[in-house]
Amino acid sequence: MKVKLELYGASRDLSKKSFIEFNIEGKSSIKDLKKKIINYVDSNFKGNNNFKKIVEASAFCSEDNNIVSDNYIINKDQKIGIIPPIGGG
């Protein structure tokens, strides 16, 4: 399955595009996706610790714009948004 990870805030530094695509196995959870993103940071940014911290501190949102927990199961191709710590206004 394909996950299109949409980037926001500090996570935009993870790519020149506004998203990163990941291939994941069936019935993967957000927790599994997080591991994939950390692996991506290891491969593409020499394990940059600041980037890893951003991923660890982020929430994730589903296509229907709800924040989902680490146990949320991704069971089809879909977009997932990474939501780093917020602070607008």
Binding site: D13, N66, P84, G87
Partner: peptide, 11 residues
């Protein structure tokens, strides 16, 4: 730099 913020929690 991106400012440090507050994490959003899942409900």
């Amino acid at each position: 730099e991106w400012l440090k913020g507050n994490p959003i929690q899942a409900n």
